[in-house]
Design a protein around this nucleic acid. Structure first.
Length: 619
DNA sequence: AGTACCGGCGCCCTCTGCTGGCGCTCC
DNA sequence: AGGAGCGCCAGCAGAGGGCGCCGGTACT
């Protein structure tokens, strides 16, 4: 009978369930240290070991065990319906497995029986609908069925030797479940397990009770969607048993060998491992792009269709998940900020933002640049900083094609260089207008900041504490004839002029001609003398009246002659373009204009000529 | 198994502010 | 002619906002 059943099992349940090594439901139960109850067991007499009727007491069971009626359909499918029970360590003496009696519940006696090497059954009497409580012991450890199946499966994957060991366990399990007979059936199952044919898996059953449906499946059956391929060797290695075996007394964790990911749940681990595979079985029918999971495919298809089911009522934004919508509403509409900084008034929508903010208080800089001493408080700043090493300038002005390292810099560039109505910043303390706010701040700092030290005027005794006030004051000294002669009424604006003037009183003539030993009060006079009398190449400038043609050696002489016009005949190049208001024709050049500290700049009113009615021409 | 919900992480963005080179003006 | 001063400008970093995506958990 059992031999027939196992055969049917292999055929049927291969199609029932795709490979999912450990369903979440099963692992949830596993975490509760549950013991599974077998349903529709034939009879204790058919089991390899003898049974003694009994039931656990309330003190043993955390959850009341409700007998699940066996249906004929389930019997035909050979579903082993397991029900979770919980027992304490006091209830089961695991160190002595030969035969243990467990406390009673509702008159049903449960026994713990060692069913072959390392295999332990918890079992109640046949009068209780043939239900059993099942646990498995390997090397004096207690395993739930879920753990057993996982251990077996991964042992099969890892190597033949372990597979053989675990196949025995699987055989024992099957035998103990009354599904196969000793002998030939055992060999059949062992062969399947070696190949790797058989494993035990769980399926969630009736949700009303805390059930697990045990099935037996065939790994070599149909092509299974999630079955590893040859190209996934690294991933399969990551699933190796050594990473996942339970350590005694500790909760098992699954470590990914490809990355740092760990998980205490196999379903999560399996889901994660899929992220390392190149397997993308889910095809988008619109663009033929493939995806790892159905969810990713669905999200992708939504980008084609624009499907974002969660729409914001206050704006036109929409999101894929409700959580994204809630977060969006907090940012944009409700401004609810649940995460508050204990050191300042900062509050944020997300915890990660608060975490980042706190680093500004602690000074923590976890992200170190590998090329310099810089370290940043978040990954983006480090990435942005790395552009200073690589020279990358990802932002390009679409008008002049200048490239920039940061988008903000480019934005300012476009605003200042290529935009009209550029905003300007008026200094609140003076009339200065500055293009950038930051530069206005520099201006304020340099010119309007209070100076504790006294700032003294260069020309008088005035004292200020602000540079701008000092500069404004010193400008009042401009054009002031501050230098007054002690010997006469002469006054001038520059000290060097006064020095030359004083020599007219003292008779001092410090500049001597090397050719004729004649002395001069000013160096400029000596130069004129030398050119005129000792330089053979010297050609004197002649100023000629454009109307009468009379020539003058000096510009002033021409003006003083009161003739009607100005003319330049030869001499060095001119700078300013001047015209007599009295009707001198255009084109007359003032040869010296623009030279000397008191001469006018090009296009400006010539001080000398202005007194005679000269006005500027268009520059 | 599928899905919703939630938290966390990462990425990209903007705004802001400081710095130093450059060119012009003034003296 | 040359130095000083100052606005202009690009480079760069600090701080924070906003959103996509992933993994864990609970529920159905």
């Amino acid at each position: 009978m059992a031999a027939t059943e196992i055969s049917v099992l292999s055929e049927q349940f291969t199609k029932i369930k795709e490979l999912e090594l450990m369903p979440e439901k099963g692992l949830k139960e596993e975490e509760k240290d549950e013991v599974c109850r077998e349903k529709d067991h034939q009879s204790p007499s058919e089991l390899e070991a003898a049974c003694t009727s009994g039931a656990p007491q309330d003190s043993v069971l955390e959850e009341e065990v409700e007998p699940v009626p066996a249906t004929s359909e389930e019997s035909e499918k050979h579903i082993l319906t397991l029900q979770t029970v919980h027992f304490t360590s006091e209830a089961v003496e695991l160190q002595d497995m030969s035969l243990l009696s467990i406390q009673q519940q509702d008159g049903v006696q449960v026994v713990v029986q060692q069913a072959g090497p390392g295999l332990l059954w918890l079992e109640e009497g046949p009068r209780q609908s043939l239900q059993q409580y099942v646990a498995i012991s390997i090397q004096q450890e207690l395993y739930s069925l879920q753990e057993m199946e996982m251990l077996q499966f991964h042992a099969v994957e890892e190597n033949v030797m372990v597979a053989n060991e675990d196949s025995k366990l699987a055989v024992s399990l099957a035998e103990s479940a009354g599904l196969i007979k000793e002998g030939q059936e055992k060999n059949q199952l062992a062969e399947r397990t070696k190949e790797p044919l058989s494993f035990v898996e769980t399926m969630s059953g009736d949700e009303r009770s805390d059930e697990i449906v045990l099935t037996i499946s065939n790994l070599n059956g149909e092509e299974q969607e999630d079955q590893p391929t040859a190209g996934q060797a690294d991933v399969e290695k990551a699933k190796s048993t050594k990473n996942q075996r339970k350590t005694k007394g500790a909760k098992r964790t699954f470590h990914c060998d490809v990355c740092m990911f760990t998980s205490s749940r196999m379903s999560s681990f399996n889901r994660h491992m899929k992220t390392h595979t190149n397997e993308k079985p889910h095809l988008c029918h619109l663009c033929l792009k493939t995806f790892r999971t159905v969810t990713l495919l669905r999200n992708h298809v939504n980008t084609h269709t624009g499907t974002r089911p969660y729409k914001c009522n206050d704006c036109n934004m929409a999101f894929v998940t409700s959580g994204e919508l809630v977060r969006h509403r907090r940012y944009k509409h409700t401004h609810e900020k649940p995460f508050k900084c204990s050191m300042c008034k900062y509050a944020s929508v997300e915890a990660s933002k608060l975490k980042r903010h706190v680093r500004s208080h602690t000074g923590e800089r976890p992200f170190q640049c590998c090329q310099c001493s810089y370290a940043s408080r978040d990954t983006y700043k480090l990435k942005r900083h790395m552009r200073t090493h690589s020279g990358e300038k990802p932002y390009e002005c679409h008008i002049c094609h200048t490239r920039f390292t940061q988008s903000g810099t480019m934005k300012i560039h476009i605003l200042q260089k290529h935009s009209e109505n550029v905003p300007k910043y008026q200094c609140p303390h003076c009339a200065t207008i500055i293009a950038r706010k930051s530069d206005l701040r520099v201006h304020m700092r340099n010119l309007h900041a209070y100076s504790a030290a006294e700032l003294k005027c260069r020309y008088c005794s005035a004292v200020f504490h602000e540079r701008y006030a000092l500069i404004q004051h010193q400008k009042t000294h401009k054009n002031e004839k501050r230098f007054k002669c002690e010997h006469c009424s002469y006054a001038c604006k520059q000290e060097r002029h006064m020095t030359a003037h004083i020599r007219t009183h003292t008779g001092e003539k410090p500049f001597t001609c090397l050719s004729c030993n004649k002395c001069f009060r000013q160096k400029q006079l000596l130069n004129v003398h030398f050119r005129k009398y000792h330089d053979a190449n010297f050609i004197p400038t002649v100023y000629r009246c454009c109307k009468c043609g009379k020539g003058f050696s000096r510009w002033v002489s021409l003006l003083k002659s009161q003739i009607c016009g100005l003319a330049e005949l030869g001499g060095p190049g001119s700078v300013s373009l001047l015209r007599l208001q009295s009707g001198c024709p255009p084109g007359l050049h003032h040869p010296k204009a623009g030279h000397g500290p008191e001469d006018p700049l090009p296009g400006q009113l010539c001080h000398t000529a202005a007194g005679t009615g000269l006005s500027p021409l268009a520059a």
